[in-house]
Design a protein around this nucleic acid. Sequence first.
RNA 1: GCGGAAGUGGUGAAAUGGCAAACACACUAGCCUUAGGAGCUAGCGCCGAAAGGCUUGCGGGUUCAAGUCCCGCCUUCCGCACCA
Length: 881
Amino acid sequence: MADDKEQRYDPATIEQKWQERWAADPRLYAAEPATSNKPKYYVLEMLPYPSGQLHMGHVRNYAIGDALARQMWMRGYNVLHPMGWDAFGLPAENAALKNNMPPREWTLGNIAAMKRQMLRLGLGYDWATEVTTCLPEYYRWNQWFFLRMYEKGLVYRKKSKVNWCPECATVLANEQVVDGCCWRHEDTQVEQRDLEQWFLRITSYAEELLQGLETLEGWPEKVRTMQRNWIGRSEGTEVDFFLAPDDIVGGTTEEPVIVTPPPDAKRIRVFTTRVDTIFGATSLQLAPEHPLVAFFTSVDGALKNQVGTLLDEQKKARESGDLGAIEKHGIPTGKDAINPYNGERIPIWVANYVLMDYGTGAIMSVPAHDERDFEFAKKYAIPIRQVIKPVHDETGAEHLPFISEDGVLINSGEYDGLKCVDAQRQLQEAAARSAFGEGKVIFRLKDWGVSRQRYWGTPIPFIHCERDGMVPVPDDQLPVLLPEKIEITQQGGSPLGRVPSFVNTTCPKCGGPARRETDTMDTFVDSSWYFYRYTDARDTKAPFDSATVQYWFPIDQYIGGVEHAILHLIYSRFWTKVMRDLGMVKNDEPARRLFTQGMVIKDGAKMSKSKGNVVSPDDMVARYGADATRMYALFAAPPDRDLDWQEDGVAGVSRFLARVWRLVTKHAPQARSSAPEARSSAVEDDALKGHDFSRADRGSQPAGALAPEGSLSGPSLKLLRKLHQTIAKITLDFEGRWHFNTCVAAIMELVNELQDADAQLTAGEIPAPVMRELLQTLILLLAPFAPFLAAELWDDLGGEGSVLRAPWPKSDPELAKEDEIEIPVQINGKLISVVRVAAGSDAKTIEAAALADEKVRARTAGKNVVKVIVVPGRTVNLVVK
RNA sequence: GCGGAAGUGGUGAAAUGGCAAACACACUAGCCUUAGGAGCUAGCGCCGAAAGGCUUGCGGGUUCAAGUCCCGCCUUCCGCACCA
């Protein structure tokens, strides 16, 4: 090697060259219009927040999506593979504060930086459809949707609790609350304040969002379960208990005070999933925030203090995030409620474990048949009355609480003897007949609070008018532009409120002076529909063109982190259903298949600045190249599992790529010497066109044609066999299993085998067309994983056109077939020997070979072979006594 | 507490119920050299000198055959969590 320097794999040079070429050809990764006669494939990776730096999690996510997109292109699909920026959000405001830089400038700068990183990584995105959510061209459609939802009755306002820092005098996002204190004022307790907030009525779709999960077979079970739990459907009964009449007289002093009860005070509605246990209810528990409690405390100072303490405690627990950890306790109110089924008086308590925002904020307490009620009753010596008798009572001893529904009613009057389920139905019917209750389905899912008292988000398109109240901004006045020259401070509420030119406006109805809404939208709004926008990203008349969306949707494969399993993925599904009901789309669900990749960790822990274990993609790319970095991200673990980043591993992949480079460049001249093969430029997926893209009808003349199989030497056949086995393995893996780690391993095996045959290759024992077939196909298999190197070597081999659009190879089963295989022989299930037989041998032949084996004969001598199990092609097992 | 996933060499991992540890990393020994983050050869689960034996968190079971299927535990990670 006279010129070693020239001979070394140099990713930096190769990758720069191809990056420039690809950048000069924007159509390379562009999707074809809906009129394309190719089948469509929409592969989508979750769009990043433009923090300014890609992290390894991004690299992994995009390496997976890019490999898939590239393989689908090679298989002849019309692929949509877009990218965008989830560009609104708090960090831009924090950066503005810290660096005195406008959020827009900061954000756009970050986008430019991250886009450079993506290009450097060689990710194949169609940048013509890039979506940036903080630009008015995009967010105006958030406002437009908001108004459509308002018209549909899906938008409303109500008072709701927000985090408020008294020092900052502003609202804090949940992430800004650290251990119950403000993130900027570590000693300042965050308060819960009631403010008017905007809500989207996602609960109207609760049932459908739940049902829809059943159709999402291409989603991970984990995600579906998480969503199911989040929606939290419960079937039960609502029952009105009555406030005992004499207790309407309030006060506990000798001088009773007569007060007028609020109209709803007479009935106390509880929700229960176990109405069959209602005869066992021995107390009634109210949430501290229950309106009736306020009524009780208004006339009872002592009770008021006690409830106050309870509330404080609860608030603290909520702020520190461990609401479940506080001890259960309660306060007797001294009042009684009447069980409508039997007229029994039971005491009313206020309990800290009853939640106002679930069910009705009131429960009946049945200690005999509920774990928590049992604990509570024991603590306060409340009677425990058993009303369900277990059907299967193996122990004989009846230990309470008995939670199961596998029982019959006792101590329940006319309902005695009924099975739990039957009793539930009958009791429910009785309640409905007497109008003190009804069957009810409730959900844990709550309406989506979308307003944020922050600056860097989509302005909510409403106007407050003294005369007309809340007035929607008319469509022709959209977008409501976010003012850009604005001083961001942490003081005095929403920053928008201090921009007079923004706030002061006129009422669209009466023309009088009015004020703009200063709340902005949750950034989850932006990400709920961005993937529709990609299909028609520059539309100025509508969010998108419905016909185009109909062509592309649903997304064929969505790929992202499992951390979005709930919020983003429920909101997106909700948004899709709303758009469907607005007649804009036809699909019920946004994505047919979802893949959640594992985290990238280092030294067993999630990468984080505080742990100091962050690996920068830029470093990796600079040291080993984009191909090696990406390929390692796919090789080190199956994509759905956590990946432990080991730099030695990246170096290993880099060495592997160098081996490929040496192998191919060394033998390229020989491979090139064969006549160029006529590769079809019309790329079609064989499965879809019934077009068999096999060696024969490809019109090419590799192995089979140019050198009839019989005339091929052993090494050629052996290598071609390995090649075709590798094609089969990788093709299959792309179709569903996605174990790209074993795909890369299979390519390594192939390369190892080629390398082992280096002597034959060099000696010219492999005919040039076979050599060409071997090396070109190797490069095709490599292309989805290491596109830069593939492009470079494809050129070197004299490959036609771009490797990125070359047809995906097809495995020839005949060539892939082994002619001799090894069959393990077991005796009584234990491995004893291995015999070689011709591939495809029948059971008899294999059995004979096994019985003839020396080791086997030694073991069976003088013994009885009771049974012989032969699994052709697999194994032989002799049962010997 | 409820739900989900996972437990295999020194490490990352592989294995449609059919030879456990493919492919890599690390390590060891040797070779080569224009000394490179290079290349080549060999070794590398455990016990044993070897023959051979043992080995997929633990305990049972199904099966000719179990890392894989079933039952019961244990551990770890993730999500939800006072949900009535």
